[in-house]
Nucleic acid binder design. Structure first.
Length: 112
DNA sequence: AACGTGACAAGGC
DNA sequence: AGCCTTGCCACGT
């Protein structure tokens, strides 16, 4: 698959998420200038090759949760990656005020 | 070419 | 808290 310019942009932003921090689909979209297009970020992640170096596991949803079914293998893999970077879960959620990146991210603006 | 579906998010109730 | 609806857009049928 030939990644589009947009996917490359999204991936490059995800590559900038520091180790030990997480971002959200919405924040990544905002940084890319793609306001409101969080789903596109999810789609770009889905399109990543399996052997990628892009830290896909540092992207979670706005509720601070991993966006895979809790039972799935993917969920466990992602959680293990995050915990290996000393990110902690409380009731299955990550505290974005503590681990979120960028740290000064504003609450996403409401659509019109 | 319409239609349904997503690793989403926010509002309303 | 949880469910439903809407906005968004790329893809596969």
């Amino acid at each position: 698959m030939v990644p589009s310019v947009t996917y490359n942009l999204i991936w490059s932003v995800i590559r900038r998420i520091p180790k030990g921090r997480v971002s959200t689909y919405g924040r990544v979209a905002d940084i890319c200038g793609l306001i409101g297009q969080s789903r596109l970020v999810g789609y770009a992640l889905h399109a990543l090759p399996r052997d990628t170096k892009v830290p896909w596991y540092r992207v979670i949803n706005a509720q601070g949760r991993i966006s895979f079914p809790e039972r799935s293998e993917a969920y466990r893999v992602q959680k293990r990656f995050l915990e290996s970077e000393r990110i902690t879960f409380k009731q299955g959620k990550i505290d974005l005020t503590r681990f979120g990146w960028p740290p000064d991210a504003e609450v996403r603006r409401r659509r019109t």
